[in-house]
Amino acid sequence: MSNDLDGRNALVIGGSRGIGRAVVEQLATAGAAVAFSYVSNKDAAAALVDDLRRAGRVATAFQADLGRVSDVRELFARAGDALGPLDIVVANAGVAIVKALVDCTEEDYDEVFAANAKGTFFALQEAARRVRDGGRIVAVSTGGTKMWFTGTSLYLGSKGAVEQFARVLSRELGPREITVNVVSPGFTDTDLLPERDRRVAASLSAFGRVGTPAEVARVVGYLASDAARWVTGQNLAAGGGVF
């Protein structure tokens, strides 16, 4: 995909680590100018910007909390000021609380849904307003919405909402030739996957291992490219055959 995205401007929401970082690297390596957000890990964000700039890529980072709608709107405004009109938006940020449904508190619900559902909803709204005709919008969900693990009701419920937001938005933006899709990663080698679960996770894959952030990012990169101009309203599994 080298130089496939030359001249495109991209915003990745939640891009300082894990899958988000790999997406930033994928889009930048493919030629896009990339802005990305982080919540609190300023050092990781700065290191990623430095790495990309040393490689001759265009990258910039902004602090934003997806749980605050005002932060979401300001992020889009700052990204637009830095890069110009956006062509690609990837909504990747999110939080998880693992707890049995019966034990979840109202505070737990508000924390998870504020970031994963409400925050992503308004990020998609800003993307719909700002992405140029013919652009690409990708939301990151999880293969867990098809697997129903115990203790994940809040996380999976919020991500299920994201999948429906994207599906409807794909219809609404179709007349502008903007594609809207979802990528659902499976078990991936990030700090969100506990060490105790990795052996079982690997055994569920057709490949006998967990995925890498770069492998998921390549699927996002495909959806951001011209090769996927006829793909919209879809939820692409990037899980090594687990689901």
Rank of each mutant, 00 (worst) to 15 (best):
L173H: 01
I19L: 11
G80H: 15
D87K: 01
R68K: 05
G67A: 12
F62W: 05
V231L: 06
V140M: 05
A91N: 13
G144E: 05
S40K: 11
R132H: 09
D189L: 03
D71R: 07
I88E: 00
W148T: 13
V140E: 07
S2Q: 12
S158C: 15
T212R: 14
A61K: 09
A93D: 14
T145L: 07
G240W: 00
L192W: 13
W230M: 07
L27I: 15
V168D: 07
G67V: 09
Q125L: 06
L101V: 08
L66A: 12
I137K: 01
A214M: 14
R21A: 06
L52Q: 09
G14F: 08
L75D: 11
A35V: 12
A77K: 14
K99Q: 11
E177H: 03
L75C: 09
A128P: 05
R196Y: 04
D51N: 11
S37F: 13
S153L: 15
A91I: 09
L204G: 10
N235F: 08
D103Y: 12
N181K: 08
E163F: 02
A30Q: 12
T190N: 11
D197K: 07
I13G: 01
D197W: 11
G143T: 11
V95R: 12
G186E: 14
V131K: 00
G151L: 15
A64C: 04
D191W: 09
G80M: 02
G56N: 07
P194R: 14
R171W: 07
A115Y: 13
L11N: 04
R129L: 13
Y222P: 04
S205W: 00
S37M: 06
R199V: 11
D43T: 13
F76M: 04
Y109M: 12
F207P: 02
A44W: 09
V131C: 01
G239F: 02
R21K: 15
R198P: 04
F62P: 10
V112C: 08
E74K: 07
S225D: 04
L204P: 02
T145K: 11
G241N: 11
I19P: 05
G240L: 01
A35K: 10
V131Q: 00
V210I: 12
K159Y: 08
V219P: 03
S170W: 03
A100W: 02
L83F: 03
L11Y: 05
V49H: 14
F149N: 09
F243C: 12
A96H: 03
D4G: 02
I97A: 13
L11S: 03
V69R: 15
E106P: 02
V183Q: 15
A46Y: 01
A117G: 05
G135H: 02
A228F: 03
Y38D: 06
V98M: 06
T150H: 10
Y109Q: 04
F121Q: 10
C104F: 03
Q164K: 15
V140F: 14
V24M: 08
G67S: 12
D197A: 13
